[in-house]
Design a binder for these strands. Sequence first.
RNA 1: UGAGGAGUGGUGAAACGGCAUCACGCCUGGCUCUGGACCAGGUUUUCCAGGUUCGAAUCCUGGCUCCUCAGCCA
Length: 568
Amino acid sequence: MHLPEETGRLDFLREIVRRDTLSGRYGGRVVTRFPPEPNGYLHIGHAKSICLNFGIARENGGVCHLRFDDTNPETEDMKYVESIMRDVRWLGFDWGEKLFFASDYFEKFCEFAVRLIRDGAAYVDSLTEEEIRLYRGTVTEPGRESPHRERSVGENLDLFARMRAGEFPDGSHVLRAKGDMSARNMKMRDPVLYRIRHAAHYRRGDEWCIYPMYDFAHPLSDAIESITHSICTLEFENNRAIYDWLLDHLFPEPRPHQYEFARLNLDFTVMSKRKLLSLVEEGLVSGWDDPRMPTIAGMRRRGYTPEGIRLFAERIGVDKANSRVSMDLLEDAIRDDLNARAPRVMAVLRPLKATIVNYPEEKVEWLEAPYWPRDIDREGSRKVPLSREILIERSDFLERPPADWIRLRPGGEVRLRSAYFIRCEEVERDPVSGEVTGLRCTYDPESLGAPSKGSRKKTTAIQWVSAPHALPVEVRLYDRLFTVADPENAGDEKSFKDFLNPGSIEILKECMVEPSLGQAAAGDRFQFLRHGYFVADGVDSRPGAPVFHRIVDLKDRYRPGPPAKERR
RNA sequence: UGAGGAGUGGUGAAACGGCAUCACGCCUGGCUCUGGACCAGGUUUUCCAGGUUCGAAUCCUGGCUCCUCAGCCA
């Protein structure tokens, strides 16, 4: 089990929380929240936010709320609520009783809206959407005030009540805050608080036909729940002005405060919900849980562990500088976790037949093979059968290997992992193509369990399976989903989809694994020796026809060395 | 050309006026029944120009570059 990496350093958010805790600003309370909109699946970027919010709460003896920010009836769905809860739990976090829905606050939101109207701080605007846009001005020119801005409190109250009562069609009126139409911050130019939308909400049905905007609902939700630190991503920096304007107006200190951090960008993938959705909808991937997807569901199916993902989140840290994280960081965190928890087994992905000519025809030996290398402090082993006909990895034999080759070669020896040394005596080949079709080997009966000496020290131990005992399985190898690091900004005219990696999945159907894998249950993770980490798939596996996904490969330091002396 | 943010090795972060540090990557070597893991060593960094200071990634001035904002999405 991997121990948490103690750095002792605090990121800027934890620094702020510590400052507030020390000063007693919130009476020592720390309450954070993770506020997803249920309109899509969570991805690794959300995982960063989840680890932050739940992590900060946990470290400070506080709590983190799970709140669904469901104020837009058009895109939200219960199925997303369920997937989000599942993903957060899977990642290892618990919101206890603190499950909330912004849609449960609709009545309260209305009361606050009425208060703002009474205070002369909000008004009903009846401009069209187009007019509102025109009146807003641009980043360099101030906006103009709406002709409806000076309506009386009474008229505003009446209009707002009738909006709520359903007297008006969509788009005919909105409730706006009285900000400042010439504000340098565009967000403060009378932000819209409520819009009319005659649409069924997935939780409230037809109860409402006015829905609050994010800028209104979010700060209020935070305040209603007595959130202390409201942590969001950088694109909301400008929105903080509304956040503060509203809460200063409606809540006394100590009220929630918003802080922003840089969202996660990962090389060779995309992180926008919209883009991920389009990959799913256009069938470019098999679904939200396609193992190539950066979604939590995809990574779960891929075999990534919650511990590995949390370790990754911890290692990348958090800051306000936009950044783009290399896939190596993620993969290494996953390997780091799996190294300690995945038992080692033997699988041959691209088999090459080898006949051990001095091994009796009918003989079968069941050899003890440890599940763990000696550097992992775990016990356990299984028996693997050995017979005259075995299968080895095609890539473990080379007829004319480079000088530093430590695997099998004609006339050379190599150890069969947990078994004997074999020597390649003869190469069988297709008479037409010349392709190597098999090897004829001899084995050294004295070499089982014996230390390797002399020239044998310069060889490795290769994985193998007994041909008559091995189980045929399908193995799926994955590679990066895109061919470029930043698919969203790669080509001027091109869509990110033009950079999809056609080799992102490779399906191997002729793989053979040791018989012990017949017991593997969906979700079981293994290290296929010298290949990488693999997980038994729970979706496409069938009895007698298991499917394994490669979670991540093993680092491979081997670079072919100088070629052996050429003979001519 | 408005406002709000951000610039530290190849990547992500730390150092909060005092030897630029950590993780990942990469390169050497050791070890190994995994060319994995592990161990040892190495590689590469403060956006630019001035200034303050004994001393600047850090403070000041000016510039440059990048990101966000003109939805009745969040």
